[in-house]
Design a binder for these strands. Sequence first.
DNA 1: CATGAATGAGAGTTCATTCAT
DNA 2: GATGAATGAACTCTCATTCAT
Lengths: 220, 220, 220, 220
Amino acid sequence: MLMASNVTDRTKPKPATASGKPNRISVSSKSAERRRHLARAAYQALAEKGFEGLRMREIARRAGINHATLHYYFAGKEQLIDSVVDHIVQDLSIGRNPRVEDAALEPRQRLKAHFNALVQQMRDSPEMFTVLAEIHARSMRDRPIRSIFVKNDRNWTKFLTGILQAGVQKKEFDANLVPEVAAEAIISLVRGLTVTCAGRAELMQRPLDQLLTWIEGRAS
Amino acid sequence: MLMASNVTDRTKPKPATASGKPNRISVSSKSAERRRHLARAAYQALAEKGFEGLRMREIARRAGINHATLHYYFAGKEQLIDSVVDHIVQDLSIGRNPRVEDAALEPRQRLKAHFNALVQQMRDSPEMFTVLAEIHARSMRDRPIRSIFVKNDRNWTKFLTGILQAGVQKKEFDANLVPEVAAEAIISLVRGLTVTCAGRAELMQRPLDQLLTWIEGRAS
Amino acid sequence: MLMASNVTDRTKPKPATASGKPNRISVSSKSAERRRHLARAAYQALAEKGFEGLRMREIARRAGINHATLHYYFAGKEQLIDSVVDHIVQDLSIGRNPRVEDAALEPRQRLKAHFNALVQQMRDSPEMFTVLAEIHARSMRDRPIRSIFVKNDRNWTKFLTGILQAGVQKKEFDANLVPEVAAEAIISLVRGLTVTCAGRAELMQRPLDQLLTWIEGRAS
Amino acid sequence: MLMASNVTDRTKPKPATASGKPNRISVSSKSAERRRHLARAAYQALAEKGFEGLRMREIARRAGINHATLHYYFAGKEQLIDSVVDHIVQDLSIGRNPRVEDAALEPRQRLKAHFNALVQQMRDSPEMFTVLAEIHARSMRDRPIRSIFVKNDRNWTKFLTGILQAGVQKKEFDANLVPEVAAEAIISLVRGLTVTCAGRAELMQRPLDQLLTWIEGRAS
DNA sequence: CATGAATGAGAGTTCATTCAT
DNA sequence: GATGAATGAACTCTCATTCAT
């Protein structure tokens, strides 16, 4: 989850057609792939320069195309940014979908894995949190983006609540825990961590461990 | 603490000198006052438009002066922004200085007061957190600003550690608490809350209560 | 005469050839037809947006083809515009060719019919005069286009002179009339009317009646 | 009347103030003068390239200033164009205001003078008619500009009607003349002439003489 | 022929900054 | 200090045109 590399990986391999001529699907997929590539270039520029320094020409340069071509794929800067936001939010949601096979795992392990993935993400692609910080800042003045995060947080809360409930039930977590409230606390703590520990994944460990300890409570 | 109004309040009125002509000190004081006034105008513009939409001309307009005059007080946009950052960080640090009279208070009450002040701040001047989010985002790409926050966080940690230690000692808090680690967790949770609950102070209560519960542990 | 619908009507349908494959002639005919179709699309775009707002892409869109295909029929924008000018001037000349059967008619009636056709044209396709105004304006800076109008005016003058001469001879018009001079006056008055009365055909009546009265002079 | 040079001449000389420091009026007049200068540069560019080829950068170049400065004086291209239209319409109205001293002159002479001024204008500044043709063309798609011309034509009609009435009364003109109708005819003829005879003032003479003959009628 | 993709040139506009007064 | 004027740099966006397929 949370793997920025997913921004690329999301490119689903199109089925190779037998005919030499590209069919409709592969054509549209090629165009979609291109758009993804451009959104990724924008994402990187955003990580390095922020919204303030985000320039269409530089995004195009990063993608290796003429800046006018960018306008062929995106009606304007705003749409390109929307695309970046969509992609990143989609990436965030990966790994937060309660999977059937997870139900068997110990909740404690699942929560730990969730945290570990976060730390790993900070190690692998710290720029993702820079971009997130930018978008979060923007979300405070931009209703539509705000809505996206609210919706995203609801899903995240649901995911965590599921784990917490299971943990309480299995006596792995503190019996007094109110799953939803704890989920809210976890989300904010994690969110704050990405800012506080920007780029230094190792700093995240202790607060996350502390959080786990609190969640386990006297149950541990 | 954390009162945005402080941005203005910090402007301490200097006693008018007897002479009709302003003396050196009052001139420099007037100049400093003007600089504070401008930084405040910039702060408001920043809250409404973000760094991306921050314009020297609009700042000047808000302050009621000609835009060219801005350059008499700040060498450039960057310096003006630095000034805003300085002011806001200074505001943040207010209320985090362990005061002698506090030592007598119960640590639990002191922590609660700290949290309440935060909620109040969100109610009174939510724009401060918008600005903070902007600056936090920038701090992830900007070393000097990052350093300011690191230093600020150290002070904050120290402040919280003091309270936590006292609380453990007085058996108000969980005996197993490692004050510094808990302080780090508190800071990140609070930081995340300001984003998650942007503008809706009421949402902050439950996570903060949860946090208190955790800190008190079986001691409660 | 002067019927904008002629822009389309001029497209004479070529009889389909027996062979299933289109032969040279029908191909070139189809191509010519397509060119006329495109010129008409350009004419309409010109009427709505003027030269300033004339866009190759929009012309293509109106014609229902890809904009790149436009370049298969016209080397460039300039050639397309030339084509529009040619078509419109050709339309203008229709009805100004002295016809044998007209010789029998009373000059007064012929002149009146000429004016009526003009009024009708303004009623039916006012956009033609918008396009004409655009091309007239351009003709004042563009020698080749100017030449086209000068030539066109010569034909128009000849047409009117014929009527006027006949009218003087038949004592229908003022005996003192110098046909060529009056023709020039008529042309300019008509030309000015199309601007002054743009889109409001009813306003053209009175000046045209006045003109007729003047031409008839004491003869009437 | 109709003197393009008036575009410049309209610059009313500001009264020199005694004080070395420029007063409010002269300052504002200087700015207004600058605006007039820029509008004139736009007018010339418009005459040479038409609306289609009108470029802010070139207008600035003609005026000898940076193109950004143009935006200091005019909010945008549209406002600059509006200014050009205003100036030209103002120029047109000069000489069409019935003056008291004219009442004594023979109407025939006054009408002739009006026509002569037109011919002279075509000789002196033919570019004015090029610009007029552009604006007329635009007026056919642009309501606000259209309104300006409608209003202008009303004044022109009034001016001519005054002369014609006086002429009829003094038996200089055809007794059957309906002044207002004739005025309309005159306006359209003149308007058409400026297009037909673009740049060749000598061609205007014969139609205008014809027009005069018609107006005088059997009275002459 | 037809088209989606691409591009160079250039448009209007904005903005931080400078400068003469 | 203060300000109106000016400017260079750079921005987003558009468009006619070209080209590979």
